[in-house]
Design a protein around this nucleic acid. Structure first.
Length: 571
RNA sequence: CGGGGCGUAGCGCAGUUCGGUUAGCGCACCUGCCUUGGGAGCAGGGGGCCGGAAGUUCGAAUCUUCUCGCCCCGACCA
């Protein structure tokens, strides 16, 4: 491709809306433009890289035995009513009506569509297992799109769905897809850590997320350097040896605590430490109030709480609910004396002796509260949020936390959709069997952004060869020099038979061309300039290296081949 | 949805407090000259419904009201 004819609007200055490096570079290098909040246009250069990523994804998914198909993005609401998700999914699911007033959904994910396809077309045990996938546009009306294509509303995703006769078979495909994912990310030049993830209350059992460690990540990961335990914040558990305090139980007693509400304020007021408190929070689980209690220095992990309660929706109760349930304003709740409400206690609470808690009365707390004696918990479970430095559940060494970008997810889904949507096949005996499902997703655009996030310097993008929009760029230093132009085009034509090559034939000054070449990050640069004029040699430079080397025209093909193979192999 | 901020040329911004020539600057763009190894220089030029609507006023980018869009923090998040 000739740069003189290409739509490549590079920017000198940083666009003000971009906050993270990958976003800045995608805009500056002319890969991407914003059309609206969370809506982006891929310009030719960016689209080319995106296609490279999808090609890798497609290649590895096919290799894992999955079959690509293409359902529509716009799906009838009835499909979602069947699975029960039409009402359950929040506002992030984009709903619209057609001219006949029929409800439609812009697919945020496609379990329903694939399950329906299998239900209609698969009837025998002989047809299973089956893994189907698509690389398609998804729409999620995100509350807050941000970081360019890292978290946007319309995005490209590869999502796969597998159907199996039994769990053993599901497990095998689950492992194979997981291996395919590892190969995909490796080929994209990405460093990715698979972490244990929450699998939810809904029939799911095992789940792994593929994380790119990054300070701009929106997810938190806990990792043990010693034994390799890795989990995301929702899933992470920690080991804690709770010590039983054998101090004598004292009589509980109400104390006036005017306007003292938060744990920190209370600790100061009582001149003690936060772990002496029993923190009580009222939640609404699918509309029904419940109370979660935990030691004052710890935080509730709402995902764990949700799983324990086996509920799909959980939110902190509003002030009115709290007042109705406890009889007191926010800040004075406690399980003491409360009836008709389910109390879920974190394990940490059991060991508190003579603790402090609210009195369910304005401006009042109770001291010397003891679990069991003063209140009962219907459920005792691990509902705490893991903290940095907590002990590893496997080997009891400290856990370290860091941020990550979720680029992929594999999930043993279970029977949720095959059950709700009545999918069955006949077995050998002619009996109906319900298939079990797995679901798998890769954010293609997010993967691309992550590649840039991990591969750039102050001058621009440094593409790994595998996803570079072009592999080689030929820079003509002086387009007035006819001999140089002729030689450069000769090289361009020649290399184009084997590689994807750009030629910078623009009538620009050399500085502009070098800056742009660095910015758009083409892995190999061939410069036809001074050295060519003086001694007939071409200058070769790899984007990721500082050194240059000079080769004659006759050695070029071989030399490029070597560099290309090496760069491909490194990834 | 709560809090904060921003909409002026393709990009980055000034001007708005305190209304008053023809709305300005840098980069980008066009023409010419010159230059050709790291975002040159000189000269000339094009491009704006100052986000939109309604109002106040002799006069509005500037004041008032409404509205739309975008960004950040938070809450939310199969």
């Amino acid at each position: 491709m000739r740069l003189s004819r290409m739509l490549l609007p590079t920017l000198r200055e940083n666009p003000k809306d971009a906050e993270i490096d990958s976003h800045v570079l995608m805009l500056r290098a002319g890969l991407l433009r914003k059309m609206g909040a969370g809506l982006y246009t891929f310009l030719p250069l960016g689209f080319k890289s995106l296609l490279k990523v999808t090609a890798i994804v497609r290649d590895e998914m096919n290799r894992a035995g999955a079959q690509e198909m293409l359902p529509p993005i716009l799906t009838p609401a009835d499909l979602w009513r069947e699975s029960g998700r039409f009402d359950v999914m929040g506002k992030e699911m984009m709903r619209l009506k057609d001219r006949h007033e029929a409800d439609l959904v812009l697919g945020p994910t496609h379990e329903e569509a694939f399950t329906a396809a299998v239900r209609e077309n698969v009837h025998s045990y002989r047809d299973l297992p089956l893994t189907l996938y698509q690389i398609n546009t998804k729409f999620r009306d995100e509350i807050r799109p941000r970081f360019g294509i890292m978290r946007c509303r319309e995005f490209i995703m590869m999502d796969a769905y597998s159907f199996h006769l039994d769990e053993t078979d599901l497990d095998q495909i689950y492992q194979e897809v997981g291996q395919a994912y590892r190969r995909i990310f490796k080929r994209c030049g990405l460093n990715v850590t698979p972490v244990l993830a929450d699998s939810g209350a809904m029939g799911g059992s095992v789940s792994e997320e593929f994380m790119v460690p990054s300070t701009v990540g929106e997810d938190t990961i806990f990792q043990c350097a010693s034994c390799g335990y890795v989990a995301n914040a929702e899933r992470a558990v920690s080991y804690e040896e709770y010590k039983r305090d054998f101090a004598p139980l004292r009589e509980k007693e109400e104390t006036a605590t005017p306007n003292v509400r938060t744990i920190d304020e209370l600790a100061a007021f009582f001149k003690t430490t936060p772990d002496r408190f029993i923190k009580s929070l009222v939640y609404k689980a699918e509309g029904k109030p419940v109370m979660a209690v935990i030691r004052g220095d710890l935080e509730i992990n709402e995902t764990k709480l949700k799983n324990v309660l086996k509920c799909a929706e959980l939110e902190l109760a509003d002030e009115d609910t709290i007042k109705t349930v406890t009889g007191a304003p926010v800040g004075f709740a406690s399980p003491v004396g409360l009836r008709n409400i389910t109390v879920i206690a974190d394990k940490s609470v059991e060991f508190i002796v003579n603790g402090i808690t609210g009195a369910n009365k304005k401006d009042t707390h109770i001291v010397n509260v003891n679990p069991e004696r003063d209140f009962t918990s219907q459920i005792i479970a691990d509902i705490r949020l893991t903290r940095d430095g907590d002990l590893c559940p496997e080997c009891r060494k400290p856990l370290k936390s860091y941020k990550g970008i979720e680029v992929g997810h594999v999930f043993k889904l279970g029977y949720k959709y095959t059950e709700s949507m009545h999918v069955s096949v006949l077995d050998k005996e002619g009996k109906e069997i319900r298939p079990i499902m797995g679901t798998y997703g890769i954010g293609v655009g997010r993967t691309l952004a992550s590649v840039i996030e991990q591969n750039h310097d102050e001058n621009g993008i440094i593409w790994p060869m595998s996803v570079a929009p072009y592999e080689i760029i030929v820079v003509i230093v002086n387009t007035q020099d006819e001999e140089a132009v002729k030689a450069a085009f000769g090289i361009y034509e020649d290399l184009s038979r084997k590689y994807e090559v750009l030629i910078d034939d623009r009538d620009e000054r050399p500085g502009v061309k070098f800056k742009d070449a660095d910015l758009i990050g083409i892995p190999i640069r061939i410069t036809v300039g001074k050295s060519f004029k003086e001694e007939g040699k071409l200058e070769l430079k790899e984007r990721k290296k500082a050194e240059k080397e000079f080769v004659s025209l006759s050695d070029l093909t071989v030399k490029i081949g070597e560099i290309y193979d090496r760069l491909m192999a490194n990834e």
